[in-house]
Design a protein around this nucleic acid. Structure first.
Lengths: 321, 321
DNA sequence: ATGCAAATTTGACTTTTGTCGAGAGCCGTG
DNA sequence: CACGGCTCTCGACAAAAGTCAAATTTGCAT
């Protein structure tokens, strides 16, 4: 390499360009390098989080519907992604919004709990880089054994990477074959400490899974489609951090749940800010369950889902007008 | 106007451009407007604080000198603006850095105390816009009667405007002609409340003034050059929020100070983060006094001043090596 | 030492963005 | 209802930023 473009140099370029408002060629002559290099440094600066470009998510909360949702379900804050055939992919829109909201909620020194799933990974993937100091990202549940693209540890690490934060992975499988083994493993100091540390998080990021054959739990082989169906008839309403919850948002009493290594719901509820993001319209019931269980304080959904939620709330309260 | 380019539209454009990464012409076709309009919206979005571009000030604190200063003077954080003949105006560099640091320190819901002076106004002037919610900017001291460019209320309002925050001005003159009148005015409910509210601030921004004929106090006619000189011989070492302090950073016992309507130093010390910014090298002694008086926890200075401070600290501790 | 590989820098080119003045729509006023 | 004044919009041009392949430099292993 010619001269390692020390972080120092990138920083200087970014500083002159973004803070002082110089043009790239001015920066180039200040630093005695070519303008092309400056352009490259600036890209790096953005990718590293040395410069932060964030757009306010205000308008998505200012929405009337968002306010009504907050009231109806007693949520701290709701963001609604408009699905006005804006962009090619509406679910990307939700993820982009969620990433912005997430970055807005993170503060220096925070401890962040991250679950897994397609939604979480999508968010991690499009999230812009930031240079948070002293941030720790902890994995909320055990890993899936199978090599799978949206693995819990991947979600955790990717988000940690984007934030320039420390990632704390869970070195245990999500689900074990016997309850005894799971219990034993939970008692292991390493695991126990990690589980205990979850309640100390300041912020959690997760989605909720549906109880059907499309669930990642089935795709990863943690449960068969048949077992899933059976659980459904036993009252399973959704999946949170790898655990099956019922319609009230409580852990379902079943063998599977007892074999899982994951954050206790009580620990999750102890987290101040619980950001739940739901992309698919099909996850209506799981979301209701999660809300009922007090598992989310901050919610990001699409307009369509928001409407359904409001309708449901209206019907439930039986108040005409 | 043709169609008020509702904030909504600006926001949408900013969202598509900055969050989704579309090009301006793509945004234009999405929104069915010309690309030129998009460019204009985006500028407005930046000016309004709907989008935030901030560059990390990390590197300025990472400096070895900054660390040594923090240790030597027991400060929370120090930022040093390099004065390597980088830019035309070194003091602008300090102000730009200070503005970034300030924005980094502000949080939603904060209450911010702002003093006045050339430095503070310069910072306000170059500070980029932000869209903080529920932020209140309070004026730390009374106003100068004379129409003067760096008036306390101007500093307060300008910063409030940049932050999209509420500005709380002080409707009293900085200095009165008799001590009795000052005392009476301080007891006025409006004034008393404002003074009492200062200790509740989360963040303060000020500089320190020199005790000489160039002081704004002299230029505004609050004190004559002769009086200033006299105060100097009585031990005046600097000016904070319109008050004269001695070398220990305490309020100097003099008639002038008793006639001033301003934040008590105790209130200032009660503020968690006290950001002091010093541009001029001539303010060495005033700065020492302010530091001695515990009036700053966060400091932004130029490299030259930083060196002088370190030399002083080294000499004071008499430790060779 | 010497050469290879990787990474950085650069100049030239293309694409994207910023800006200006002209024009058009809206509003209050005479 | 015509008229200025105002702001917003658009097209066209100028400026700036992004990009690529080639050249250069450097680190490292042989």
């Amino acid at each position: 390499m010619a001269i390692r473009p020390a972080e120092q140099l990138i920083h200087k370029a970014a500083w002159l360009y973004y803070a002082h408002g110089l043009r790239q060629d001015e920066v180039a002559s200040q630093l005695n390098i070519s303008r092309a290099s400056v352009a490259m440094y600036l890209r790096k600066a953005r990718e590293t989080g040395i410069v932060n470009i964030s757009t306010s998510t205000q308008l998505f909360t200012d929405d009337v519907m968002a306010r009504r949702l907050e009231d109806a379900f007693d949520l701290g804050a709701v963001w609604i992604a408009p699905e006005n055939a804006y962009l090619a992919d509406p679910s990307t829109d939700i993820a982009v919004l969620a990433a912005s909201v997430f970055l807005e909620l993170v503060k220096k020194g925070d401890r962040i709990g991250v679950a897994w799933g397609r939604t979480v990974y999508t968010i991690a993937d499009i999230m812009s880089y930031a240079d948070l100091q002293d941030v720790t990202v902890v994995q909320l549940c055990g890993n899936l054994g199978a090599p799978y693209s949206y693995r819990p540890d991947q979600c955790t690490m990717e988000i940690a990477r984007r934030l320039n934060a420390k990632g704390l992975n869970f070195y245990a499988p999500l689900v074990l074959s016997t309850e005894d083994l799971a219990q034993g493993l939970r008692a292991e100091p390493v695991i126990r400490d990690q589980l205990a540390g979850i309640a100390d998080c300041d912020l959690a990021l997760y989605s909720v899974g549906a109880v059907d054959a499309d669930s990642h739990l089935v795709k990863c082989g943690a449960l068969s489609a048949g077992e899933m169906e059976a659980l459904r008839s036993q009252g399973a309403a959704g999946v949170i951090a790898g655990q099956i919850i019922d319609a009230k948002g409580e852990v379902l009493d079943c063998s599977y749940n007892r074999r899982v290594i994951s954050a206790e719901l009580a620990s999750l509820r102890a987290i101040e800010k619980r950001l739940m993001v739901v992309q698919e319209d099909t996850k209506f019931e799981p979301l209701l369950a999660a809300i009922a269980g007090g598992l989310c304080t901050h919610l990001v959904v699409g307009a369509h889902m928001a409407e359904r939620l409001l309708q449901h709330a209206g019907a439930a309260s039986k108040k005409a007008s």
